[in-house]
Amino acid sequence: MSRPLSPQERALWQRVAATVRPMAPKSARAPIEPTPPAPRAAATPTPAPPRPASVPARPAPPAIAATLDGSWDKRLRSGKLTPDRVIDLHDHNLERAHLALHSAVEAAAVSGDRVILVITGKGRPGRPGRIRAELHDWLASARISHHIAALRPASPRHGGSGAFYLVLRRPR
């Protein structure tokens, strides 16, 4: 299903299309020499087209990104580490998945577990999973962020791109 282009998008597309040349048939192709860029005229800035709502717009929070040493990362990448707890969030709606994640992290922190395998699902081709897209924001919430040491992608043995290892801080 497509949508009509906005006037800004149509103008941008016309500028791009004007710079394209049709390819010659395979038998007549010669090496393409780079053409110098055309001089730029002072134009009014064109606003960027809006992003689709399903694409995550921000990277992982820095507190989750780099708080493990190399031995942890090596064990996580190899899949040799056995998770203390597994939580499967795919097939949940966003609200239920959010609540389940928060309660699992709090329960794991109380019981002294260190590694949780969080299964989010991979999504569908062309449409990334919504739970997967929201996971970083949920983990950054003030209610549970103080328990979290790191978030890493799971090894293929534990779900690959459809799952994450959530490493909790050592209890004090």
Rank of each mutant, 00 (worst) to 15 (best):
3 R>C: 12
11 A>G: 08
11 A>C: 08
12 L>Y: 07
14 Q>D: 09
14 Q>P: 03
19 T>W: 12
19 T>D: 11
21 R>M: 15
24 A>Q: 13
26 K>G: 13
28 A>K: 15
28 A>S: 14
29 R>S: 10
31 P>R: 11
31 P>H: 09
32 I>R: 13
32 I>P: 02
33 E>H: 12
34 P>N: 11
34 P>L: 11
36 P>V: 14
37 P>C: 14
39 P>D: 08
39 P>Q: 11
41 A>T: 10
43 A>M: 08
43 A>T: 08
43 A>R: 08
47 P>S: 15
50 P>K: 09
53 A>L: 12
54 S>I: 10
55 V>F: 14
56 P>W: 04
56 P>F: 07
56 P>C: 14
61 P>V: 06
62 P>S: 13
63 A>C: 10
64 I>F: 05
65 A>D: 14
65 A>G: 02
72 W>P: 00
73 D>W: 03
73 D>C: 11
74 K>C: 08
76 L>C: 06
76 L>N: 00
76 L>S: 01
77 R>Y: 05
78 S>L: 09
80 K>W: 09
83 P>V: 09
83 P>A: 15
85 R>S: 05
85 R>M: 11
86 V>N: 04
86 V>C: 14
87 I>N: 00
88 D>Q: 10
91 D>I: 06
96 R>Y: 06
96 R>Q: 10
100 A>Y: 03
102 H>W: 13
104 A>K: 05
105 V>S: 06
108 A>Y: 01
109 A>N: 07
109 A>T: 05
111 S>W: 07
112 G>V: 04
113 D>L: 08
113 D>P: 02
115 V>C: 07
116 I>W: 00
116 I>T: 00
117 L>E: 05
117 L>I: 04
117 L>P: 01
121 G>F: 00
123 G>M: 05
123 G>L: 10
132 R>Y: 02
133 A>L: 05
133 A>K: 02
135 L>W: 00
135 L>F: 04
138 W>E: 02
141 S>I: 12
141 S>D: 15
142 A>I: 11
142 A>N: 15
142 A>G: 15
148 I>L: 03
149 A>T: 03
158 H>Q: 08
158 H>S: 02
161 S>T: 03
162 G>D: 08
163 A>C: 06
163 A>I: 01
167 V>S: 00
168 L>D: 00
168 L>C: 05
169 R>F: 06
